[in-house]
């Protein structure tokens, strides 16, 4: 007996692309199947039963029918529409960055349950958090962990010596910390202060409830952002597009 024609899954809607007049191809992230693309027929019709349930930034319960190429969404129900994220420009920008990271780093139909939980939690944390920078850095660090890019933060990845409490380097190509002597002549490395390294080490091993207690000064927050963005850019071999929008919003606030 073959697989059943329909199946049900929870999903976070990552993005949607209009196809034809009223149809939409949505990219979703699910706990059992990882990322997949599915067709939401008639999603752009005003009276569509799918409509808002398949909008990006929504946690939904979907019924899908197996299709020849793409599966087809036949029923949908919103579990959480994250209205707080959709009514706050900065939080929405952060959440869209989170979605883009998941989309960029994952392959279709590659199950990763911890990553689904992390994604869902990150969206919830963004709704509640006063400091979204902590949510984003914590998310990035653990996303990389679940995808096999966990950076080594305790010993020099070149000479294996223990890291001294001085300014060291984060080697993007090496995937971790370089001691002060090994890191000096590496072009794809970013200097990292003792405080920044301590914060990364703590976040790498603690839960979010502990991570959020860290109070980040603006210079430290900027340093952590530069290190993590540099590492992500190296891994993807391109910029994450949503970063430009986050930067633009930051400039608007400081203007």
């Amino acid at each position: 007996m073959g697989a059943p024609r329909t199946y049900q899954t929870y999903a976070v809607i990552i993005k949607g692309v209009r196809i034809g007049e009223v149809d939409k191809i949505v990219t979703i992230y699910t706990p059992e199947l990882g990322k997949l693309k599915a067709v939401a027929k008639g999603a752009y019709r005003p009276g569509s039963k799918l409509g808002g349930n398949v909008e990006p930034l929504t946690h939904s319960l979907l019924m899908l029918a197996r299709g020849r190429n793409l599966d087809i969404i036949t029923q949908s129900q919103t579990i959480d529409a994250f209205p707080v994220l959709k009514s706050d420009l900065w939080r929405m920008a952060c959440a869209l960055y989170v979605l883009e990271l998941v989309d960029s780093f994952t392959m279709e139909r590659n199950e990763n349950r911890p990553l689904f939980d992390l994604l869902l939690n990150a969206l919830k944390w963004l709704c509640q958090s006063e400091d979204s920078e902590i949510v984003l850095r914590y998310f990035e660090l653990h996303l990389l962990d679940y995808l096999g890019y966990r950076p080594e933060l305790h010993r020099c990845v070149i000479c294996n010596s223990s890291i001294k409490p001085v300014i060291n380097f984060f080697g993007f190509g090496q995937g971790g910390i370089l001691c002060s002597s090994c890191g000096q002549d590496k072009p794809a490395a970013h200097s990292i202060s003792v405080e920044a390294l301590k914060v990364l080490r703590l976040w790498q091993r603690c839960d979010y409830a502990t991570a959020r207690r860290v109070v980040l000064k603006s210079e430290l927050a900027l340093e952590l952002e530069q290190v993590m963005h540099g590492y992500i850019k190296y891994l993807l071999q391109r910029e994450v597009k949503s970063i430009a929008w986050l930067e633009e919003l930051k400039r608007e606030v400081t203007c």
Partner: peptide
Amino acid sequence: PFGGDLEYADEMT
């Protein structure tokens, strides 16, 4: 929307 159905309306709407 006119012609819609309350039962199938999404949470945000």
